[in-house]
Deep mutational scan, measured.
Amino acid sequence: NKASVVANQLIPINTALTLIMMKAEVVTPMGIPAEEIPKLVGMQVNRAVPLGTTLMPDMVKNYE
């Protein structure tokens, strides 16, 4: 099973992601793959992301 990106803390709306906000975890359903973490740094979330939430592509602005 591949790990996904999971919020390590509450991430407020429009916050630019940093490494300490994210962790890799095997979850179902899968979200953004953990190997994308370096690419996510500096990208903004378009909603508040609660602690423990799996990051999905539609939660990150301009994620492709």
Rank of each mutant, 00 (worst) to 15 (best):
I32V: 13
A7C: 05
T28Y: 05
T15C: 10
L17V: 05
N8L: 14
N14S: 10
L51Q: 07
L17H: 00
I20A: 04
E35Q: 05
I20V: 12
M59K: 02
P57H: 13
A24H: 09
P33W: 09
N1P: 15
L19F: 10
P57C: 14
E25Q: 09
A7S: 04
N14R: 13
I37M: 11
L40R: 00
M56S: 09
M21E: 02
V41A: 11
T15I: 05
P12N: 10
N62R: 10
I32M: 04
Q44H: 10
R47S: 05
L40P: 00
N1D: 15
Y63E: 02
P12D: 07
L55M: 11
P38A: 13
M30Y: 13
K2N: 15
E64W: 06
P12H: 08
V60F: 03
L19C: 13
S4Q: 03
T18G: 02
S4H: 02
L55H: 00
K23Y: 04
L17Q: 00
N46W: 15
L55Q: 01
A16Y: 10
V26N: 04
K39M: 04
P12V: 10
M21F: 07
N14I: 08
L17W: 01
K2H: 15
T54P: 08
T15F: 11
T15V: 10
A48M: 14
V5F: 01
Y63M: 03
V45Y: 00
N62F: 06
R47P: 02
P57K: 12
L10K: 11
M43E: 02
V60N: 00
Q44W: 14
Q9C: 11
K39Y: 06
S4N: 02
K61D: 09
M56V: 08
K2M: 15
L10M: 07
K61M: 09
V6F: 08
V49I: 13
L40M: 07
V26W: 07
R47M: 04
V41R: 12
P38N: 07
L40V: 09
N8H: 13
E64T: 14
I20G: 05
E64H: 13
V5G: 04
T15L: 06
K39V: 06
P50Q: 13
K61C: 13
Q9M: 08
V26S: 15
A16L: 07
A24F: 14
A16K: 05
E25P: 02
I37C: 05
M59G: 07
V27H: 05
A34H: 14
G52Y: 05
E25N: 13
K39C: 12
A48W: 12
I11W: 01
G52T: 04
N62V: 06
M30R: 02
Q44L: 13
L17M: 11
A3V: 09
N14A: 13
T28V: 07
A16G: 02
A24M: 11
A48P: 04
N46Q: 12
A7H: 01
I37K: 05
S4F: 08
A24Y: 12
M56E: 06
D58P: 07
A34C: 15
E35V: 06
M22K: 00
N1Y: 15
P29W: 15
Y63D: 02
I20F: 14
V41E: 05
V26E: 15
A48G: 05
G42K: 10
E36I: 08
N46H: 12
Q44Y: 15
Q9K: 10
Q44V: 14
V27D: 03
K2L: 15
T28I: 05
G42M: 08
V6T: 09
A34K: 06
V60K: 01
E25V: 13
K39D: 03
L17C: 02
I37R: 07
E25H: 12
A34S: 13
T53R: 13
P57L: 07
P38G: 10
G42V: 02
T15M: 11
L55F: 13
K61E: 08
K61T: 11
K61F: 10
N14V: 12
T28F: 07
G31K: 01
V26R: 02
I13V: 07
K39I: 07
T15H: 07
G42Q: 13
M56H: 07
G42P: 01
T54K: 04
I32H: 01
L51M: 11
I37G: 05
D58A: 11
V41P: 04
K2P: 15
V5R: 00
A3S: 13
Y63F: 06
M22E: 00
L40G: 01
K39T: 03
E35Y: 07
K2C: 15
P50E: 11
A34E: 05
P29N: 11
M21L: 11
N62M: 12
N62H: 10
A24I: 09
M22T: 03
E35C: 12
N46T: 07
V41C: 10
T53Y: 13
V49D: 01
A16P: 11
Q9D: 10
L19D: 02
A48V: 11
M22S: 01
Y63H: 03
V26H: 10
K23M: 08
M59W: 09
A3D: 14
T15Y: 12
G52C: 10
G42W: 13
P38Y: 15
V41M: 12
T28P: 02
I11D: 00
I11K: 00
D58K: 13
A7L: 03
T18S: 07
V45G: 01
V45C: 08
P50Y: 15
A3G: 07
T15W: 14
E64A: 14
T54Q: 04
T53L: 15
A7P: 01
M59H: 06
E64I: 14
